[in-house]
Write a protein that binds this DNA or RNA. Structure first.
Lengths: 217, 217
DNA sequence: AGTTGTGAATCTGTTCACAGCC
DNA sequence: GGCTGTGAACAGATTCACAACT
């Protein structure tokens, strides 16, 4: 029996979210236990990979039986750190910002969007989807007062760098960045970049080169 | 000199989009040449990685000088398959669908959104952002008539599986999937999944475990 | 029989370090 | 001196295969 569960592969962390959704799905189908094989099949993975991923965090399974869904859900939520509430801000209320502010999936994982920042004077002081809108100059104040840990950036590329600096200055802990801008920083925060055009470009690449096959990416 | 540029690492393909944006940025700053070191620094990568990535596709650089920006942009666009137009459909005109339909970044890379599908009778026959809205039952007809290669799925999870099946049946070549649903398929199409809640969950994980350090993800 | 957990083997991707060219 | 391109070394992630348990 292994006692030390050391640095976890980044790839494993990314898959935990997928496992969580699979478990919730299996539970809603009325299952009590699920095997690594079933988790794998539902996601186009191998069962060995599922077992190895989960074994990074402990011995959750029962041989011959599989994993107890209810308790594995709790475990994964705890591992991911979503067995609590997170306060989230959205910076930039364009189309994308509106979509993210209205996205139901965030609430379900314990992410509460509690503030929006935008430079449009017509929006400031009002609410969108029940969420108050502030001027970016008030970022530090609002982030501290509302105890916001994570920000989602959906501003135009030209405003991105400045927004990130302001957020870091305000003491934000994590940033989900939807702009093209990439920061290389030594500061103490976590940043994850999502490049929407890049996703389509990757698809175009694989369509163009069907021989170098790679279906699910 | 290597003549065969074989199966390219998936990770490399993903970075090509980043390089492309970096090159466009450097060009707009007035540069003619750029070194692998500069590309790397702008993105928090190593210069060796940039060189190795680019060397997958040919010898584009000039020793002692760097890469000619203008021609490297053309090369990468050609490699990615975006030196042409792609016709794209959006399936599901909720908040996210609207955001994607209005997203400027797609146009810039040659992705034209030419059709939207939604079940809302009040929307069908109208336009959003100048893009005509159709009933999903007409998918096969519209996709063929408008020569659509790629679809973006932003429907509720409950409708996702059906939408994917309809798209594949209509002969779609690539799908960008924003729903939780994962398909494991043997069919001849490329699918890429983007999990928005999962992105935030990964951030929560790394905030919760600051010791297992990993800043830019 | 069915399934987990895991060491070993394999595969994939990154970094090093330097020859070769400008 | 500066920079690319790349083989070799290294690190990371996946798959194999099987002992152990129910």
């Amino acid at each position: 029996m292994t006692e030390y569960y050391g640095p976890t592969p980044l790839a494993t962390v990314n898959r935990l979210s997928i496992y969580l959704r699979t478990l919730e799905e299996a539970q809603s189908e009325g299952h009590k236990y699920i095997s690594s094989k079933s988790i794998a099949e539902r996601n186009g993975l191998t069962s060995a990979q599922v077992r190895k991923d989960l074994s990074c965090f402990g011995n959750f399974g029962r041989k011959g039986k599989g994993y107890h869904i209810q308790s594995l859900i709790q475990r994964i939520r705890s591992i991911l750190g979503i067995n609590r509430k997170w306060n989230v801000a959205i910076v930039g209320l364009g189309h994308l910002g509106e979509a993210l502010a209205g996205y139901k999936g965030f609430q379900r994982s314990g992410f509460d969007i509690v503030a929006i920042f935008d430079i449009d004077e017509n929006k400031i002081g009002k609410k969108y989807n029940g969420i108050p809108i502030f001027h970016p100059d008030d970022m530090k104040k609002v982030i501290n007062r509302k105890n916001i840990q994570i920000a989602i950036i959906s501003v135009p590329a030209s405003a991105a760098k400045n927004s990130i600096e302001k957020l870091v200055d305000a003491g934000i802990e994590g940033i989900l960045n939807f702009t093209d801008v990439r920061v290389s920083t030594k500061d103490e925060f976590v940043i994850k970049n999502v490049n929407l055009a890049g996703e389509l470009e990757t698809i175009a690449y694989y369509i163009t080169r069907p021989d170098w096959q790679c279906r699910g990416i």
